[in-house]
Amino acid sequence: MIASEMKRAFPILAVITALLLAYSTYQALVVAPTERTMGDVQRIFYYHVPSAWTAFCLFFVNLIASIVYLVRKNPKADALAVSSAEVGVVFCTIVLITGPIWARPVWGIWWTWDVRLTSTLVLWLIYVSYLMLRRFSDSAQTPVLAAVLAIFGALDVPLVYFSIWFFRTQHPQPVIGGGGSLDPRMLHVFLLNLFTFSCFGAMLCWARYRLELLQREVEEVESLQSLRGVPQ
């Protein structure tokens, strides 16, 4: 009952998210004031930080789903784990691409091996290896191994987040809660984009989760038919 209602709600929520994305992009590109020292390139901030936030949230979902899978062996938790990891990697890829594009005109370099940047790259590599394991291993133990890897991978998330508090880095300190200040109009646009990207991430994860369940259904029907000797 709930599943069918959620299925019906999906297109409506997808349209609302698309409208929110369009509105947030307009706010970020047009309405938000131009930063005095960096100029227009600072507007990358409205995509870069919310993408990082969404990736972290999805990796957290992956951690919880992996723990639930290890404890209860629930296949739906495993499906959620792989879905959240994949969508998290998409958002983390955006962070790793938009970061250097922002860094080049501001720092004069595309990349530097400082703690924040390196730990983010390591985080991305861990979750890419998680997805590779899921994709290329056929063993019955794969979900268990992947869940354990996910738990270790999640340990890198606080390291990425707190690296700019504990180490001297090229990456700037957080503007919220880190001693910096943000123009209230910029803060408004930033929070709007943060909310929008969270909704967008949740929608993508939901779509990927549905795809994963469908994939498993197909595999189940295929194996049932091969057991019955039905030609495929």
Partner: peptide, 12 residues
């Protein structure tokens, strides 16, 4: 500055 901004948005 605008070129870098658009490059980031297009990539995203």
């Amino acid at each position: 500055s605008k070129g870098f901004l658009y490059a980031a948005y297009i990539a995203t």
